[in-house]
Amino acid sequence: MASRMFPSRDDRIQPAEAPPVALTIDGQRVSGLRGQTIAGVLLASGRLSWRTTSAGATPRGVFCGIGVCFDCIVTVNGDRDVRACQRRADDGDVILTQYDDLPGHDDQPQHDELTRRDELPGAAS
């Protein structure tokens, strides 16, 4: 078993019936209820992780749940770095997971310069 939503009919709190919302995450359709956060929708669908870390390429999802850790960030309708645990899901939201590879750097100066010089046949020098 994994993360999931407590079935309303068994819930002593008796939540109201909320209208459904549907969003896509990396093209896959996921449905939830109006008022859920994006993280809520994803967790309720059994997804535990969605981001990939930059250095170790390992999976991350919710950690703090209250907007502090930024582990849960996703791209929402083109806006990057949206905390999924804070943003309520809107019908039609297009969610993309984030994996930001690190740019390489090296201590070899000449290498860079040469390749760039090659790119620039027309450059005055």
Partner: peptide, 25 residues
């Protein structure tokens, strides 16, 4: 850092604010 490890506050916030249980066991 594994998915499935939460702060205790996360479990609380998801339970109260979403009625989502972060796990089964």
């Amino acid at each position: 850092d594994l998915p499935g490890v939460f702060s205790a506050g996360a479990a609380q916030a998801l339970a109260k604010g979403e009625r989502v249980a972060v796990g089964g066991r």
